[in-house]
Nucleic acid binder design. Structure first.
Lengths: 332, 332
DNA sequence: CTGATTTTTGCAACCGGTTGCAATTAAACT
DNA sequence: AGTTTAATTGCAACCGGTTGCAAAAATCAG
């Protein structure tokens, strides 16, 4: 059915090994036979079967890309960067959507069956256990957007969420807000836990500052909107640090529906700096998470593990910065 | 390194064939040996290597998912549906991001090398040639969101874009708009061409209706915003049928920035019915494209082609419906 | 031109499975 | 119990490649 080594070998009048060697980097073939082989291969439209060769070489160049957040537009940007980055390095993303199930075992088995060379877990809402399950199965794994740990069990690439929390608190306080609050993402997400820790830490030390918090049930517009609507029923804070941009946009929508204005009545600051934050009708002040660097670094790391699977687990954190837009009142 | 058939066979005290058979549906194995094998396999944590078996069976259960639109949040919803749908049927999506390159040949070769069982091209902005390249390479292919053709060269699943154009025109005219316009997506996209055709067809036949058109450079917020900003410089139409929802949202933003109101000053109707259209601060009237059905049907079709690759190419179109929200004035 | 070296080549075994076929075993029938 | 028939099993070849090894060819030295 499809063209194989043998076909090319016969047409070129050489052994199958010779053909194999012309298509393997750094194998010993004379210029003469190489030319014969290439000619025959072109003629037949031969493409080496990557999966067959993976059997002997043990490399598939497949990378499992595991994600569970298909309702946050930010992750479309993330997918774009991941897929392009992997492709640029000759790797292929095998996508696993975890939205429904929570059991790591299934996906570990699945990806093992396909002998992926490595796995990237791209989510801040999956527990660290998840990435560990891959490590325990002997699969190189990187947890992108994961939780920092001083002695990590797996490679983690992301941001310092505690520091982001602090940064948000300082930003709000600097602008003269006194009653401030954290409107987090899902309470179980490590990112939420870390962000609130940093936020509260700074807020509590600031004289005259009152801090409170609540959680949206997901990193989503609807969840942010629902939670903010609830908050508006009683005495809302003067400004909110939101779990992420999409939660902030939901909150913004709720505030406007209530006939209030951002930032005049209530200030908002998000986190991520997704494309939509720049949309002129949203114009969200936010903490920029350097996704391109995080993703590049994740891919580099997983690629490095292909060379040295016993590589010591490492946490790579990238600095964030405030993107000043229109959802907070200006510095006094 | 990893557990193989042989290991299990030895531990269970049977032949390798016996082990293989216990793990293949419908093979002849006695209950007794099956139990022995399962026990040994569990003990060792054996997982059959999907790629090795693909070598003899010719089936990888890999499906190439080819897309080029990673800047339209609608496609996150599409990816969610595709990945879940494929997973539910035991198929795995191998994602190809075409954002940068336009040459089909590369991706065809790439996916051929991985012996994907089939390919789904999910894009309305890729030319039909693209899907054809797969067909010509003997790879089962379905073009989702592709252009309808009465004698299609490949399977196409989507909507009748011409009819959507008509539907949009009728909707605007019914509501008393007289100067109406099409603000399309990229002019080269077949979806754009078809939508404008239907739109103009109806508009030109309606007495007293003036129709005009222009194109956004992409299906994106920015492109929609830029184009609408340009339109506002001169005399804008009373209502616009936008290339898709994200273009409409960009247009909406431009209109509001200009100090005008939707729908009081300018009416908008989109297409897709993405989640954001329901967001309360967007509240876009739009033509709903039944993505779940389109995607389900696409997957069914590609799965059916695995059984019968010579299946006659088919075009499956799904009906769209108007989702009445707040961006058009009500029926008189 | 001969012998020593280096490079190229093909053979054959292997990667981890599947499967046709013949042999063996179990079940069904007289 | 003796046949006939059906179900199970293992052997061995194969899927499409890769690779160690020894033989063959090419290159280099003298």
């Amino acid at each position: 059915m499809s063209i194989t080594l043998k076909d090319v070998a016969e047409l070129a009048g050489v052994s199958r090994s010779a053909v194999s060697r012309t298509f393997t980097e750094g194998a010993s073939v004379s210029e003469k036979t190489r030319r014969k082989v290439v000619k025959a291969a072109d003629e037949l439209g031969y493409r080496p079967n990557a999966l067959a060769s993976s059997l002997t070489t043990g490399r598939t160049k497949l990378i499992g890309l595991v994600a569970n957040n298909f309702h946050n537009p930010y992750f479309l940007e993330v997918f774009d960067l991941f897929t392009r980055g992997l492709q640029d390095r000759g790797l292929r993303p095998l996508l696993v959507n975890l939205s429904q199930q929570t059991d790591p075992v299934n996906s570990v088995n699945l990806l093992r069956q396909y002998s992926v060379d490595g796995v990237i877990v791209a989510s801040s809402t999956l527990s660290p256990e998840f990435a560990r399950a891959f490590r325990d199965a002997g699969v190189p794994v990187v947890h992108s957007f994961g939780r920092f740990a001083s002695a990590p069990h797996v490679h983690v690439v992301g941001i310092d969420n505690v520091e982001c929390g602090r940064m948000a608190a300082r930003t709000l306080i600097e602008r003269g807000y006194r009653r401030i609050a954290f409107l987090g993402g899902p309470e179980t997400a490590t990112s939420t836990q870390d962000r609130i820790a940093g936020f509260v830490q700074v807020a509590e030390r600031a004289p005259g500052v009152e801090v409170s918090h609540s959680f949206a049930s997901a990193y989503s517009f609807d969840a942010g909107r629902v939670e903010m609507t609830k908050l508006l029923m009683t005495e809302p804070a003067e400004a909110y640090f939101c779990g992420d941009d999409v939660v902030a946009i939901g909150a913004q929508s709720a505030i406007r529906s209530a006939g209030l204005r951002v930032p005049e009545d209530i200030g908002l600051i998000g986190l991520n700096d997704m494309e939509m934050a720049r949309w002129e009708n949203i114009d969200l002040t936010t903490i920029r998470q350097p996704a391109p660097q995080i993703i590049d670094s994740s891919i580099d790391l997983v690629a490095a593990m292909l060379e040295d699977p016993r590589r010591y687990p490492e946490a790579r954190l990238f600095p964030c910065e405030i993107m000043e837009r229109g959802s907070l009142r200006p510095l006094p």
